[in-house]
């Protein structure tokens, strides 16, 4: 094993170090989206971000993706700067809207990131079909996106995000637009896929049960300015199935997350009173 690999094994997937993000600084519409956020995520870990609307979850995810840069502090992904990790396509990303390209067939949508990486056609076509099988849509390769249901489109988006086998998956409310049944189904599939490929996931959600079911750790955030108020460990083991949703430990986790979120609410109400 090369020294590099040894380093790689012990390296953290994501390190967020005293990150502050201010939008429109020194302008009337200035927003302190994040203040002094610290978070370290180990390889293979599934971490959810939860918190009231506007607390900076998407902003934090975008910082990890290097879609935007921090105002202060730094973000490391795979031991390199977030910007470098983006150039190396070290992560895949999925949003609430599947964001498939209407003019590309399903298989060509999945091929897009590989195409941009310069893979040759045969190789990327083979990988795309492999990914379609993984998300259980092998017979839809030639379909156009609009011919698929919302849940199927979201699966294609996940296949696309995972196509280059990135070590890190960033997801912003990917199941937010799905009905409850499809949603639970997709959650189970996502866990299987990520466990099989040992992918690290950072997952933004508004759903407490979703966060509990999926995560190893749930990061609870508060707004104005966006900060991490609590990190809830979820001890449901690594083999989670439909039975997990009935388990006492599952309900305990939900309660723990809910209480952490309540704390924010109370603080906000108190803050409101103090301001007067």
């Amino acid at each position: 094993m090369t020294p590099n690999k040894i380093l790689g094994a012990s390296m953290n997937a994501v390190v967020i170090n005293k990150v502050t993000k201010v939008f429109n600084p020194d302008k009337p519409n200035q927003v302190d989206a994040l203040l002094d956020v610290d978070l370290t995520i180990a390889p293979g870990e599934f971490v959810s971000l939860i918190g009231p609307s506007g607390c900076g979850k998407s902003t934090l995810l975008r910082l990890i993706a290097s879609l935007i840069g921090p105002t202060a502090g730094d973000v490391l992904v795979n031991g390199k700067s977030a910007a470098q990790a983006r150039l190396d396509q070290d992560y895949g990303m999925a949003f609430q809207q599947a964001g498939l390209f209407d003019w590309r067939s399903v298989v060509k949508n999945i091929e897009l990131p590989l195409e941009l990486k310069g893979w040759d056609k045969a190789k990327r076509r083979a990988r795309a079909h492999e990914m379609l099988a993984l998300v259980k849509l092998p017979e839809f390769a030639g379909h156009m996106p609009w011919q698929l249901s919302g849940g199927m489109q979201q699966r294609v988006a996940i296949a696309r995000a995972l196509a280059s086998h990135p070590p890190l998956l960033l997801m912003d409310e990917p199941f937010g637009a799905l009905d409850e049944m499809t949603r639970e189904h997709m959650q189970a599939e996502l866990l299987q896929i990520c466990a099989a490929s040992n992918t690290t996931v950072v997952f933004v959600t508004h759903s407490i049960p979703e966060a509990a079911y999926l995560s190893d750790r749930v990061v609870v955030m508060s707004p104005r300015p966006g900060q991490i108020t609590e990190i809830v460990d979820v001890d449901l083991g690594s083999d989670r199935d439909e039975g997990t949703r009935e388990a006492d430990a599952f309900y305990d986790s939900i309660t723990a997350i809910r209480e952490a979120l309540r704390g924010i609410e109370h603080a906000e109400i108190r803050g409101g009173v103090d301001d007067r």
């Binding site: 983006r86 396509q89 949003f95 964001g99 003019w103 897009l112 195409e115 941009l116």
Partner: peptide, 25 residues
Amino acid sequence: HATHLELMRSYAASPLAVLTKTRIP
């Protein structure tokens, strides 16, 4: 679509690729 532009950025796509694979289609 804003999502398309963010995806292209996440793929580290060149401005030319953004033009030919997103804006023109």
